[in-house]
Amino acid sequence: MERIMQVSGAMDNWLDPAQSNVGGQETLVNVPMNRDRFEVEAMPHLNDLFRTASRVLGERSRAEDVVQEVFLQAWKSFDRFEPGTNCRAWLFKILFHCMNHHRRKWYRFPLLREKEEFLEANLTSVEPIPEHLTDEDILAALDRLPGDYRAVVMLVDVEEFTYKEAAEILGIPIGTVMSRLSRGRKGLRDLLETVAKEYGLNRAPKESRR
């Protein structure tokens, strides 16, 4: 926790919503800090942020620390946040920025080389697979995706951000979001298919009709 606090000063500029274009906001004006507004606009997203952080970081205690830090930073900058703009996207941007700050210390995103190995190993099957999968199976498969793909899949497919918002949150081009999403989805699908096969439960549509 102390470590997180030490770097928070370096995030001040980034955290200024006036400099953020998340949610398509072009111009923001100063508004008075408002605790009630923070409660209404920011706090309801706490669970989603924690769950995303937990999956990205792979450790609940770290996710707890990061989420606290995210809300603290958001609160400090909230007087400059315009009501009605996309607070949720803004919070997620802070979240990913916080997580990136600690990447060297304990981020578990695999390196690019690992990503390529993952693709070679996994992007082969196009068979549909059944839904005999528990939440644990799905989360385990999600965890096996390379971190960059996992982040995009979670932002677009779970949190339902647009490509543009996901690109803003992650600070990457939209084209990169799209390609990571495509590969991430495919990788996830193949991993789930493998799990289903291991269970011996895999029955493709043709087989199930026999």
Partner: peptide, 15 residues
């Protein structure tokens, strides 16, 4: 079949 919409739904449920 685990089409995209199914996969999204399963993902959300798991999350």
């Amino acid at each position: 079949p685990l089409d995209l919409e199914n996969m999204k739904r399963l993902l959300k449920r798991a999350m």
